[in-house]
């Protein structure tokens, strides 16, 4: 099988499975929603006189980070049932194609949750989403993809261990510090209504992060999948 068609097959398989069960999306979405609700309790915007521009970037990024971890985890946990991991390892294609397929599907899952959560957060916190939409879309997409690149590799590692649910956040959160920092900073500038010029370099850096860890994933995934 050619590498790109194998990648698309794996990605298609995950998307199809998700469309039928809606397990990952539903849990990640409700989790995101709950985080937002907890935040609106934690920061009482009206009485504190805070603007969403001040803390909004943090809220959006905590939501994205934690819900993404949930989706990433699920993408490999479903493969543990009926020993599908062995099936994936035995696929007549390069292991890197499996990585790329999973990475693609994970990025789509993470972004799908954001598509619903961003409008809801604009309702909850009362900011003008349409005004910042193009910039915010760019920042969220690039950073979510970067986060998923490293996250897919680490999820594949943690699923092989005994307490995978515990291990993924421990591995991923410190290592993904750069995308979180750049994402928060770019989002803050974007929410403050600054032009793309002022945070474009942050988006570029996150894109580099994504590229570096996609390459690392492609090169190292073989060792992770071995039985």
């Amino acid at each position: 099988m050619r590498a790109h068609s194998a990648t698309l097959t794996i990605c298609g398989k995950d998307l199809r499975q998700e469309l039928r069960t809606r397990e990952s999306f539903t849990s990640a979405f409700f989790f995101s929603l709950l985080i937002q609700i907890v935040f609106s309790f934690s920061f009482d915007f009206q009485s504190l006189g805070l603007g969403f521009e001040d803390v909004g970037a943090g809220i959006l990024w905590i939501t994205l980070t934690f819900s993404a971890i949930l989706s990433l985890q699920n993408s490999f946990l479903i493969e543990r049932e009926k020993n599908c991991l062995a099936g994936l390892a035995l696929c007549p294609c390069d292991p890197s194609a499996v990585f790329l397929g999973k990475f693609l599907a994970n990025s789509l899952f993470v972004l799908a949750v954001q598509v619903l959560i961003l409008p809801i957060s604009s309702l909850f916190f009362g900011y003008d989403l349409l005004r910042v939409l193009p910039g915010l879309c760019l920042v969220v997409t690039v950073n979510a993809v970067g986060f998923s690149a490293l996250g897919t590799l680490f999820a594949a590692i943690s699923v092989r261990t005994r307490r995978s649910e515990l291990l993924l956040p421990l591995l991923l959160l410190p290592a993904a510090t750069p995308v979180v920092i750049w994402g928060v900073k770019a989002t803050r500038l974007c929410l403050a209504g600054r032009p793309l010029d002022s945070y474009g370099y942050l988006v570029a850096l996150s894109a580099c992060f994504g590229v570096i860890f996609t390459v690392a994933g492609v090169l190292l995934f073989d060792y992770v999948m071995e039985e």
Binding site: L153, F154, I157, T161, L220, V224
Partner: peptide, 11 residues
């Protein structure tokens, strides 16, 4: 050994 080697390199 294998999994931690990958994390050691990426880290």
């Amino acid at each position: 050994a294998r999994l931690s080697a990958v994390v050691g390199i990426v880290g």
